[in-house]
Write a protein that binds this DNA or RNA. Structure first.
Lengths: 209, 209
DNA sequence: CAAAAAGTTGACGTTCCGTCATCAATCTGA
DNA sequence: TCAGATTGATGACGGAACGTCAACTTTTTG
């Protein structure tokens, strides 16, 4: 008789403890950032929220900034598979844009569901925004997707980098606004952003940029 | 005989010294941030770059973060009159968009002219981005401008907040990309952003959002 | 010109940082 | 199974950066 094994049990106690500690620190940081604000938080505040000793923090992160990055990267890590699905399933530019913006705005709403209920400010609204290499990678993936989609309809000569920047900038800024509204409505934001982007691309095509 | 007086001379020595000190600190911070990076910089590093004593720093700013904000706000302060001019002179939505994006991209290029020559990273590319109340104010001004322009052509029912967010997001993200290119070309970025935004608004109008 | 006010100074106590010797728990392989 | 090896947690410690403040200097006021 074969037994289904939780992958976590495959690892030794050591490896599991490490993962648990890392998670604990990240979760504690989330909580403390929300409670007293990012700037005011220091490393001892974070570690005090866990059952770990201060020295242990440095086995996992170099600094408060790195914790913040890790939190952001965790989000990116969860988002990437969604974007992959969009990439695999999209038929053309229009469906890609709708699906991609939809994935982003929905993801953003879900990620902040808790914060929305509690009324605590969202991570991207606490005043600082980081740009990590992981985010850069996602940008590049989107650019590549758009290039393929545009090539298919003979628009490969358009400025892909600017189009990508425009789409991402739109998503970021609109995302912040979306989270401020009640009810939070990702579908509306999606339609809006997709329409603008699509129309924008068509206009660029007509005027040969 | 009337004498032209430098406004600075109208102030007493004390007031002038205060301005000079504030400027000195801001300039020193600029230099040090560029030299060793924002995260690595501490307050002593900044003050050491001036001829002031450490205690004096705290007469002007509470923290390194506040200095960063002040630098950002200084930029906003210089930008606002340009936007005001755009507002006063624009005839319609299209001319407003071209002029506003143009003002932003040109301003950005000029502000970073020095950094571009030296190859040091631009303030908005050093990994953090702050959102200050002053920037919020500019957002609101742009939203108001857009509302007026859209009302004039019977499109006041469109979602002004989202349109503003889309335009600002586009400008920010495209601005970063623009600064990475050689030569830096604000006109191209302007045409691009204005076209996309204009086409986007037209598309929204057609589909009644 | 003298008294009051404003602002600078840098030494000092405090807070926070990052390291590391020590210890406890887990893993390895015979 | 167990002893030696390894991994990683611990928290006390030395040092770095912080923010304050009493003393001092310069400017303003009347």
């Amino acid at each position: 008789m074969t037994v289904r094994v939780d992958p976590n049990l495959r690892m030794g106690k050591r490896a599991r403890a490490k993962e648990a500690n890392r998670r604990a620190i990240l979760e504690a940081a989330r909580v403390v950032f929300a409670r007293i604000g990012y700037e005011a938080t220091n490393i001892r505040d974070i570690i005090r929220e866990t059952s770990l000793a201060s020295g242990t923090f440095y086995n996992y992160f170099k600094s408060k900034e790195e914790v913040f990055e890790a939190i952001a990267n965790d989000s990116v890590k969860r988002f990437r598979p969604l974007l992959q699905k969009v990439r695999d399933e999209a038929q053309d530019l229009e469906s890609y844009l709708y699906a991609a913006f939809g994935a982003y705005f929905t993801f953003l709403a879900e990620e902040n569901d808790e914060a929305i209920q509690l009324g605590t400010p969202h991570m991207s609204l606490i005043g600082v925004r980081v740009d990590t290499p992981e985010m850069q990678t996602v940008s590049e993936e989107i650019a590549a997707d758009l290039e393929i989609a545009l090539d298919k309809i003979g628009l490969g000569h358009l400025d892909i980098v600017y189009i990508t920047a425009a789409a991402i900038g739109m998503a970021r800024e609109m995302g912040d606004q979306m989270l401020k509204r009640r009810p939070v409505d990702p579908e509306a934001a999606t339609k809006f952003a997709a329409k603008v982007t699509l129309a924008g691309i068509e206009a660029l095509a007509k005027s040969d940029c």
